[in-house]
């Protein structure tokens, strides 16, 4: 039991062991150096590399996000422009169609006018011609009547009768 109680006292085995202390110091410093070279060093480098990798990745992601946004903006602008163009084309087409319609109507109207005018002229001419023909006929009839009158010295009655007859004849002929 004496030895056991001796254990409880610091360095009871005969004071602090200077050798142990030196060995501990050397061991620890060597361990520190070795681990620094073979374990902590590479680990720390690894951590740093990962850190820079992640920050790079974040930068890249940020950049590509911006790019994508820009592209999207461009695309939507493009779409808007295209839509406007389409609208303009439709407007244009409508306007042209309206103009064409108007011009077709106009030309049809002038054509109709022209046809009407020419028809009227034709009618006039025909009438003219008919009148001419009638005049010719009347002239020849007068000549005929005159010759008949001359041919037969007719009584007044007969003459009257004859005139009536011819007029009737002419009327029938017409």
């Amino acid at each position: 039991m004496g030895a056991y109680t001796g254990w409880l006292v610091i360095g009871a085995e005969g004071g602090l062991m200077v050798g142990d202390m030196l060995v501990q110091l050397i061991f620890f410093l060597v361990l520190l150096a070795l681990l620094g070279k073979f374990a902590w060093g590479p680990l720390m480098d690894m951590l740093k590399e990962r850190e820079s990798y992640i920050s790079n990745e974040i930068d890249t992601a940020e950049k590509s996000r911006e790019e994508a946004q820009k592209m999207q903006r461009d695309a939507s602008e493009e779409l808007k422009k295209t839509r406007q163009d389409a609208q303009a084309i439709i407007e244009e087409a409508k306007k042209t169609a309206g103009q064409q319609e108007q011009s077709i109507i106009n030309s049809a109207r002038t054509e109709a006018e022209r046809i009407k005018v020419s028809a009227r002229e034709e009618i006039e001419q025909e009438k003219e011609k008919a009148i001419q023909a009638l005049q010719d006929k009347v002239a020849s009839l007068s000549v005929l009547i005159a010759s008949k009158v001359i041919e037969k010295e007719l009584s007044e009655q007969d003459q009257q009768k004859l005139i009536d007859e011819y007029i009737k004849e002419v009327g029938e002929e017409r």
């Binding site: 085995e13 062991m17 200077v18 050798g19 061991f27 060597v30 681990l35 374990a39």
Partner: peptide, 23 residues
């Protein structure tokens, strides 16, 4: 210069374990 050889042994073992584990 006194040594407690068990301490020396155990310090060596502890250092070796730490070193091997870390490496």
């Amino acid at each position: 210069l006194d040594f407690n050889l068990s301490n020396v042994l155990m310090m060596f073992i502890a250092s070796a374990i730490v070193f091997i584990f870390a490496v």
